[in-house]
Amino acid sequence: MYKAILYKEWLKIRWAVLGYIIVLLGFLTYIGLEVRYWFGMNDPISIWLMVIQKKILYYSAIKFLPVFAGIVLAVVQFVPEVVKKRYRLTFHLPISETRSLLFMTGICTGILLLFSVIYILGLTIIGGSFFPREITSSSLLTVAPWLLAGLVGYLGTAAIVIESSWIYRLAYALMFTPFIMKLFAESGYNEFQFSFGSYLLVSLFYTIIVLFPGYRLRKGSK
């Protein structure tokens, strides 16, 4: 049964997944070429000043890609479910609605993790090729909130898409948006070094929220 749900979800999201991977690889290639250009055109001290003193993040071009991926994934996954009330088909399958909804969100969470692995791997390769290990590892800590924003963006968009009431939709938007904005609020590197764990814990709470609009749909809010 779970294999069948995985199959259905894959049919919905596959083009978005492939499209995002291409875009991400494109951006990573661009960053790699850009950093190489820096080193070609500037002396190492200038680059050091840019990266360390001026806190210019050489990977800021991909700052919003994870949240963009999360939003797109939620839309392509759940819009087909709510159009023509197709969620009724899903909720009539011989599997509990909580499990099926958790599994469905779990699939995209897994895909977002896969995206994150590619993202981190790309940055590690680029950073490792041009910078000392400290800068590379700091870049990973700096992008961690951005990656988390991708997951929260996905959960928030999913809740908003699944929800049938505009008032609840607004409530979800108000609940998710400030948190996501906070995750992008850095003005340098490593700023979430000591607080990231707390943000991660709060994100777990958002995982449960997505079940609520599903429950409301199942029990007849629409």
Partner: peptide, 25 residues
């Protein structure tokens, strides 16, 4: 259940939808 308007997973093909449902019953 047959839903009003013959709602089904329209993003699937004839064979895909059969493959999907056959796993549940």
């Amino acid at each position: 259940l047959l839903h009003e308007g013959h709602v089904c997973y329209e993003f699937m093909t004839v064979a895909q939808i059969e493959k999907f449902y056959s796993r549940f019953f």
